[in-house]
Write a protein that binds this DNA or RNA. Structure first.
Lengths: 110, 110
DNA sequence: TTGACATAAAACCATTTGGTGTTATATTAT
DNA sequence: ATAATATAACACCAAATGGTTTTATGTCAA
């Protein structure tokens, strides 16, 4: 159980092409060729991106005749949302600029 | 102007060590050696991570005597937050399971 | 059944990544 | 002055990344 995940969601989303693929799949399920037609890279390259997205459980493909239809599973993105939300306190309150200045004073002392 | 950014914020945050560095710096400003003491990697490796984080404008270092103190700039994380928030619609409403099932039916037909 | 289409699998390649070790330079404390 | 500390600047390395081309294999439509 609990297989070693080779690609986590942060890494999966680090590549702009993969982010665009996720966006495409948010509108409709698409076959590999249909996804490829949106980019200037080869189908093989697209398949590799899809494999990485699959390993992060962000998409899954289902064979349908001679096509393989991919669809989105956005749930793992929650991990990113939660991670980022921790840092919101540092820009979300009015005291952040004061905090910044105080910290800089500390820098000068040490 | 508008220099070519070698590392964007998505890529900067893709590495677990770099995420941990950001977390450390959210508590207090730290010198390179202090950051290094939290990990089992060499200082040289930590410096490379800090360089990548700097290029993404997530941290900046300020020389103070013989030390270089790094501090956090969480603002660029907003880009990630905004990107992820688009996908919230797909898990945030009660209809997502129905939507999922309908899409699967469509897969069977095509 | 035969050609066109869609995917799969494999070998290959250049660059980046995440790390190492070594050497040099600047600063601090004794 | 000198030793210890903190960083900087290199050169180096194995593995991963993001891409390619080539060669199959399965499926559909005429």
């Amino acid at each position: 159980m609990s297989a070693i995940k080779k690609h986590d969601v942060f890494q999966a989303v680090a590549d702009p092409t993969r982010r665009e693929i996720l966006h495409l799949l948010s509108n409709q399920n698409l076959a590999i060729s249909e996804i490829t037609s949106h980019f200037s890279i080869t189908r093989t390259a697209v398949v590799k991106h899809l494999t990485i997205l699959s390993e992060a459980n962000l998409v899954s493909g289902k064979k349908s005749g001679r096509e393989k239809i991919y669809h989105l599973h956005p749930e793992p993105l929650m991990e990113i949302k939660n991670w980022v939300s921790y840092f919101e306190q540092f820009w979300n309150n009015k005291l952040s600029m004061l905090k910044y200045l105080v910290e800089n004073e500390e820098d000068k002392k040490e």
